[in-house]
């Protein structure tokens, strides 16, 4: 009897621990707008904030636009300027979504799970729906996740000569990865 109560208590505590929101302040978001004629327009942001709430099945990301680092400083300058991401006025990109097939993941059991995520991506104050597949790895109290999808820059009011000239992809790939505790 004592053993049963103890087992129940341990199970409850571990479930409570996993019911808490998991976060990371060192998530990576990679932006790849390179084309066959220009390999330079790609960047990484390694200080993005991520959160997964197992109780609510929500997924969130926040990234400071100025933290996207390009190898070429001139391209980084263009990326932040008013006609592109206008990071002075719109300093942050956000994603607020949900896992649409929550039965596909068991946050209380170690394993690798493929889930579907759908949500709102906001860049430059313009919000678009995004649907993507993501992988969630449950390892003890840690979650690791990654996903990638393409966006249309025009949907977020980002247009310009380098895109029409084929030097910057009109539909860059966004890759997201995070370890959440």
């Amino acid at each position: 009897m004592k053993r049963t109560i103890l087992s129940l208590m341990i199970a409850t505590v571990s479930m409570m621990a996993f019911a808490q929101k998991k976060t990371s302040t060192s998530a990576t978001i990679a932006f790849d707008a390179s084309t066959s004629i220009d390999d330079l327009p790609k960047a990484e942001n390694k200080t993005a904030i991520a959160a997964i709430d197992p109780a609510k099945n929500t997924v969130q990301f926040e990234a400071a636009i100025k933290s996207f680092t390009f190898s070429n400083p001139k391209i980084q300058e263009h990326f932040n300027q008013k006609s592109w991401l206008n990071s002075d006025e719109f300093p942050k990109a956000t994603f607020n979504g949900v896992i649409t097939n929550p039965s596909a993941v068991n946050f209380n059991k170690d394993g690798t799970y493929n889930v579907a995520v759908e949500g709102d991506l906001t860049i430059k104050d313009k919000t678009q729906k995004v649907k993507t597949q993501a992988t969630i790895v449950v390892a003890g109290k840690t979650l690791r996740t990654n996903a990638s999808f393409n966006i249309k820059l025009a949907d977020f009011g980002v247009e310009g000569q380098p895109i029409t000239a084929g030097k910057v992809s009109a539909e860059p790939k966004i890759s997201v990865s995070a370890e959440l505790n």
Binding site: I49, A51, Q60, E62, S67, P91
Partner: peptide
């Protein structure tokens, strides 16, 4: 980089690169 408010962390985060 910059310092902005995080809705997730409910706090400011100030970024430095390189």
């Amino acid at each position: 980089g910059d310092g902005i408010y995080s809705e997730i962390k409910e706090a400011y985060f100030i970024n430095f690169q390189r």
